[in-house]
Design a binder for these strands. Sequence first.
DNA 1: CAGTCTTTGTGATACAAAGCACACACGCAC
DNA 2: GTGCGTGTGTGCTTTGTATCACAAAGACTG
Lengths: 216, 216
Amino acid sequence: MATSTPNDNLGSESPVPEVVIQRLPLYVRVLSQFSSSGNDLISSEQLGAHLQMTPAQIRKDLSYFGRFGKQGRGYDVAMLEGELRSIMGLNRTWNAAVIGMGRLGRAVVAYPGFAPEGFNIIAAFDASAEIVGQTISGLAVQSISQLTDTVKNLDIKIGIVTVPIDHAQKVIDALVKAGIKSILNYAPLSPQVPEGVTIRGIDPVLSLQSMTYYIR
Amino acid sequence: MATSTPNDNLGSESPVPEVVIQRLPLYVRVLSQFSSSGNDLISSEQLGAHLQMTPAQIRKDLSYFGRFGKQGRGYDVAMLEGELRSIMGLNRTWNAAVIGMGRLGRAVVAYPGFAPEGFNIIAAFDASAEIVGQTISGLAVQSISQLTDTVKNLDIKIGIVTVPIDHAQKVIDALVKAGIKSILNYAPLSPQVPEGVTIRGIDPVLSLQSMTYYIR
DNA sequence: CAGTCTTTGTGATACAAAGCACACACGCAC
DNA sequence: GTGCGTGTGTGCTTTGTATCACAAAGACTG
């Protein structure tokens, strides 16, 4: 779905294309699979086969960040995974907050896939007075009015938006105002965010809609 | 996440770039919002403002399919939405099956967002003998061995994969073998699919991982 | 340790997508 | 019906991304 990200030409930092950044987590994933299946060396060819992309593209992508391979042998799986995690900021944990504790929000806080990857949901918010105060999956649901304070106090860096569509933009604005720079949006709208804030949308309907074209 | 799609140079049909196809549902969404807020004319400028993209790109995208606007006025909202829906194959309903009736599969079949957009989940499958036979959200869970038959009998065109990662590739292969050409994959792996099959992944972790780079 | 084989890293090249800018179509006013 | 304002559709240019292809680096072989 729609994504927006810093163009990142601030100063002279990374001129690394956004697409490349989006592929790195894929590499990390394949590498971790690969290493747990006993291999400790991998070639760009093998990596490419797993991801259905060309070896050249993988080498190009990696070359934005350094020289991690050895000619004639390939890449040390564990080492490359570590390097990529470090580049991406994945060798640490990140605190996240979920806003919207309806059906979807409950599913998100209960989802067991975040924590193992270092994403800890440590706060939950809702607008409804009936839900505020409840404990859901071990989280005490707070009022949205406490958002800014809690974000500051708990060092929350990521906001996950699971409110109904008609509240979504307001909530996103509030997150931005609270200083959040990374937002994961489950609401089916095209959100407006200022430059410098990255937002990614999760929207299965949009994915389905873009597939029917090919089977029409 | 990883997507794969027909390169679509079959015969001499549409040389329409994949990215364009992925944007059309966004246009449809904004148009439907816009019309329900009383407007019946929209310019590429306004559309662009909503989606944070340039007017020129929108006009270019639309020009792949025809000339829908009127100079000096813009686009008739309802008409354009209708045209786009027709182009995308969204002016009909599509039958879908969910494979994997664990936590995630249950959430998917219970999700109320699919049906209003014409995606009807009319079959559910699972490998576990305990789950097969249960009725979940009104669907009688079937054994995966019945997949091919049911797909044929019920005219199912879309497969939604919600099985654990270590079964996902097998299930995807089974769907492909059953003739499914559109797959929505919730399992966190990079699936292998033959050409001619479109697969889209829903993976919040991947989205989070590609955001941390910018706030590292 | 020379020769061969493999696989990287990367400049050069080809391809694809986005943006610009303007001619032209349409609507409206007078 | 002439003239003006607005916004489309699109050829051309610019920007961005992927691929090619090859030199150089390491490993292994006898």
